[in-house]
Amino acid sequence: MSSASDTDRLLAEQLLRLTRRLHRIQKRHMVPLGITPAQSRLLRLVSHYEGEQAPRMADLAARLEVVPRAVTTLVDGLEAAGCVRR
């Protein structure tokens, strides 16, 4: 293996470990709030629509790069937690 590919592999492994660690930290901070990291991401996105017309589920799904059904599930959970209303 060349030195460049060794470096690329090492950087990829470190990035994966860092991503996993950040996800665990974020999840730990969200537990007391009763929301998941995905719900937190949706809340951040929805907060940018403040004062504007409520975004459509399809628009949120496109911005989050997920299928609309996934957004519906996230919104359902946030609505049950009292974080959003339709």
Score class of each variant (00 low, 15 high):
Ala80Lys: 15
Ser5Asn: 13
Ala70Ser: 15
Ala70Arg: 11
Glu65Leu: 08
Ala54Leu: 02
Leu64Ala: 04
Ala61Val: 03
Leu64Cys: 04
Arg20His: 04
Asp76Trp: 00
Val31Ser: 07
Arg86Lys: 13
Arg17Gly: 02
Gly34Val: 03
Ala58Val: 11
Pro55Val: 10
His23Asp: 15
Cys83Lys: 14
Ile35Tyr: 06
Arg20Asp: 13
Leu22Phe: 05
Ser2Thr: 14
Val66Pro: 00
His29Trp: 04
Ser40Arg: 12
Leu45Thr: 05
Ile25Leu: 11
Leu43Pro: 01
Thr73Gly: 07
Gly51Phe: 08
Ala80Cys: 01
Leu74Val: 03
Glu65Tyr: 02
Leu10Gln: 12
His48Leu: 06
Leu22Met: 10
Gly77Ser: 10
Pro55Thr: 05
Val84Lys: 00
Lys27Asn: 11
Leu10Lys: 11
Val75Asp: 00
Arg17Asn: 04
Leu18Asn: 09
Ala58Tyr: 05
Pro37Gln: 06
Ile35Lys: 08
Ala61Ser: 10
Thr72Ile: 09
Arg20Tyr: 00
Val84Cys: 09
Asp59Arg: 08
Glu50His: 04
Leu78Pro: 01
Ala80His: 08
Ser40Phe: 02
Arg21Glu: 14
Val71Gln: 12
Pro68Ala: 10
Gly51Ile: 06
Val46His: 07
Arg17Tyr: 01
Ala81Tyr: 02
Thr7Phe: 08
Val66Met: 12
Arg24Gly: 08
Gln39Pro: 05
Gln53Asp: 00
Leu11Glu: 13
His29Tyr: 08
Arg44Met: 11
Leu78Cys: 07
Ser47Lys: 11
Thr19Tyr: 03
Gly77Val: 07
Pro55Tyr: 11
Leu10Asn: 06
Glu79Leu: 04
Met30Thr: 08
Cys83Tyr: 10
Val84Trp: 00
Asp8Leu: 15
Arg63Val: 00
Ile35Gly: 01
Gly51Asp: 12
Gly82Ala: 02
Ala81Phe: 04
Thr36Ser: 15
Met1Ser: 15
Ala62Ser: 10
Arg41Tyr: 06
Ile25Thr: 13
Cys83Gln: 10
His23Cys: 05
Thr72Ser: 15
Pro55Trp: 10
Ala62Ile: 00
Gly51Asn: 06
Gly51Arg: 13
Arg56Asn: 08
Arg44Phe: 05
Ile35Cys: 03
Leu11His: 09
Ala70Val: 13
Ser5Lys: 15
Val46Glu: 13
Arg20Glu: 13
Pro68Lys: 10
Thr72Asn: 12
Gln39Asn: 05
Ala62Pro: 01
Glu79Phe: 01
Arg56Trp: 07
Leu78Glu: 01
Pro37Lys: 04
Glu13Val: 04
Ser2Met: 04
Arg21His: 07
Leu22Glu: 10
Ala81Asn: 07
Ser3Asn: 14
Arg85Trp: 01
Leu74Lys: 03
Thr19His: 06
Val71Glu: 03
Arg63Gln: 11
Thr7Asn: 14
Gln14Asn: 12
Pro55Asp: 09
Arg17Thr: 08
Ala61Met: 11
Met30His: 09
Leu64His: 07
Leu64Gln: 12
Leu42His: 05
His48Lys: 08
Gln39Leu: 01
Met57Arg: 13
Ser40Ile: 00
His23Tyr: 07
Thr7Ser: 12
